[in-house]
Amino acid sequence: MLELRLVQGSLLKKVLESIKDLVNDANFDCSATGFSLQAMDSSHVALVALLLRSEGFEHYRCDRNISMGMNLGNMAKMLKCAGNDDIITLKADDGSDTVTFMFESPTQDKIADFEMRLMDIDSEHLGIPEAEYHAILIMPSAEFARICKDLSSIGDTVVISVTKEGVKFSTRGDIGTANVVCRQNTTVDKPEEATVIEMPEPVSLTFALRYLNSFTKATPLSNTVTISLSSEIPVVVEYKIAEMGYIRFYLAPKIEE
């Protein structure tokens, strides 16, 4: 028997909006520790890892570890029917081939039930080694989204270079080139507006902008984004989910011939 009750239902709505265009079908894994997902996009270039810890739910009952295969587009359609202030409860009986999403309005005067068929998805979990990152960038998530969007109107590949001066995002295309430099800036009124660069050593990597733009769909989840870079390994773009967990996107680099 699985019953997860999330008072801040809008978090689950936002999570689905941020992954439904990157991954079509995925297994949600439920265990005593929490509700998680790990899935690659169809080209195996990007991976999303989601964790919502059990403590973040008002009520978390998971009698045994189960994995539920879902079509994320359909799940997003159902969650779209939940109000932003609704409490969302996810229920599944043992051995059932459906999952039920229950939406309760804050005043409990409206209760909705949406039942979705589960799918068999054979996806293998990848081992993601803990890495020492050469540069860790923490910046306002809206700013990162704006940079990715602006640069993708000029080119389809971005070179992200981190030096002690700051971080530079560069692209080039048919109409010309673009460079955006963000300097470390910690003298801000609110901490979430700071740009922090922890850079044990300079690093420069090349990525496809369309994936980074897809990742920035998670911007509504967090005011800040953490971008961890190391030479020759995938970048991690992480959005914390308020006291519950995180959504992490991994993107393999493009290597200059």
Binding site: P129, I233, P253, I255
Partner: peptide, 14 residues
């Protein structure tokens, strides 16, 4: 020309 690498070159199946 930059070549896109795939993630499975970095992350092994468990």
């Amino acid at each position: 020309k930059a070549t896109q690498i795939v993630l499975t070159s970095f992350f092994r199946p468990n």
